[in-house]
Amino acid sequence: MEVRTIKVFTTVDNINLHTQVVDMSMTYGQQFGPTYLDGADVTKIKPHNSHEGKTFYVLPNDDTLRVEAFEYYHTTDPSFLGRYMSALNHTKKWKYPQVNGLTSIKWADNNCYLATALLTLQQIELKFNPPALQDAYYRARAGEAANFCALILAYCNKTVGELGDVRETMSYLFQHANLDSCKRVLNVVCKTCGQQQTTLKGVEAVMYMGTLSYEQFKKGVQIPCTCGKQATKYLVQQESPFVMMSAPPAQYELKHGTFTCASEYTGNYQCGHYKHITSKETLYCIDGALLTKSSEYKGPITDVFYKENSYTTTIK
Rank of each mutant, 00 (worst) to 15 (best):
N49F: 09
S294Y: 09
Y274A: 08
L17M: 14
Y72W: 11
C182A: 09
A115G: 09
P47C: 02
T302M: 00
N49I: 11
E215C: 07
Q238R: 02
K183T: 10
Y84F: 12
Y306A: 05
A136R: 01
K219C: 15
Y284Q: 01
R83W: 00
M245D: 07
I152S: 06
C193H: 06
K275C: 05
A136F: 04
V99T: 11
Y155A: 00
T313H: 15
Y208K: 02
S181L: 08
A69F: 14
T198L: 12
I6E: 02
G210E: 04
V21M: 13
N147W: 05
C112L: 02
T192V: 09
D41S: 10
L163I: 09
Q196C: 13
F148R: 00
Q230D: 11
H256N: 09
K54P: 00
Y208W: 11
K255L: 08
D303M: 08
T192M: 09
A177R: 01
V42M: 13
D38R: 11
L88C: 07
Q175W: 02
Q122F: 02
K191N: 12
Y172N: 15
K93Y: 15
Y306E: 03
K191T: 14
K229G: 13
S171W: 13
L173N: 00
G210W: 03
L173F: 02
C112W: 06
L200A: 13
A142K: 14
V12S: 12
L200I: 11
D13S: 02
P241H: 09
R139L: 12
T91S: 02
Q195A: 15
D13W: 08
N268Y: 07
G143R: 01
P60R: 04
T192E: 15
E296L: 13
A115F: 00
G299V: 05
L151Q: 01
H256R: 14
T313P: 08
N16G: 05
E239Y: 09
G288K: 00
K307E: 14
A205R: 04
Y214M: 09
Y138I: 13
N268E: 15
L37W: 14
K298T: 14
E168V: 02
A250L: 13
V206M: 06
T5M: 07
A154W: 03
Y297T: 03
Q30V: 12
Q216R: 11
V206I: 12
S310H: 14
N129L: 08
Y306R: 05
T199A: 07
V58E: 01
P78G: 15
A154R: 02
Q134S: 11
Q175K: 15
N111T: 03
S79H: 04
L126K: 01
E264N: 06
T11R: 02
E296K: 14
F148A: 00
L151G: 00
E253D: 04
K233N: 05
I315P: 15
N309P: 05
Q197G: 08
C193F: 04
E239Q: 11
K183G: 08
Y84A: 00
S213I: 07
G143K: 02
D303I: 03
I152L: 07
E204Y: 05
C261A: 03
L212G: 08
L186M: 12
N157S: 07
I152G: 03
M24Y: 11
K191S: 12
I301L: 05
T266V: 14
E162S: 11
H74N: 11
V58T: 10
A154K: 01
V185C: 05
T226C: 15
Q230E: 12
E296C: 14
Y96N: 00
S86G: 10
Y297V: 06
W107F: 15
N157R: 06
K280G: 14
K218T: 07
V221W: 09
A142L: 13
K127A: 12
Q123T: 06
I152Q: 03
F9P: 00
K191L: 06
N157W: 03
F148L: 12
S25Q: 06
L235H: 03
F128Q: 02
D62L: 06
A115S: 09
Y57C: 07
L186A: 08
L179S: 06
F56K: 01
V42W: 14
T35A: 08
K316M: 12
D23R: 11
K293M: 09
S295Q: 14
Q195S: 14
C156Q: 06
V243A: 07
T199Y: 09
Q222R: 13
A177F: 04
L121K: 02
S279T: 08
M245E: 08
T103L: 02
R139H: 11
V58C: 11
Q197H: 12
I223W: 10
N49G: 15
F174K: 01
F242K: 06
E162W: 01
K92A: 05
V21E: 14
E264S: 15
N49K: 09
A117Q: 06
T11C: 03
E71Y: 08
T266H: 09
V67H: 15
C112V: 02
Q98S: 14
N14R: 14
G202V: 04
M85V: 04
D287K: 02
Q98M: 13
H48S: 11
L114M: 05
K275T: 14
K44A: 12
G202M: 03
Q98I: 07
G288R: 03
E68G: 08
K93A: 09
Y311Q: 10
M26F: 03
C285A: 03
Y311K: 14
H256A: 10
L163C: 15
N111R: 00
D303F: 00
P300I: 14
A69S: 09
T314I: 14
G257K: 05
S310N: 08
I286F: 08
Q230C: 06
M170L: 11
L37E: 14
C285F: 06
M24E: 15
L37C: 12
Q195P: 11
N178T: 08
M207Q: 15
T226A: 14
H51L: 01
C285T: 07
K307S: 10
S213T: 02
G161T: 02
S240H: 05
E281G: 08
L212M: 07
K191Y: 15
Y72M: 14
G202R: 03
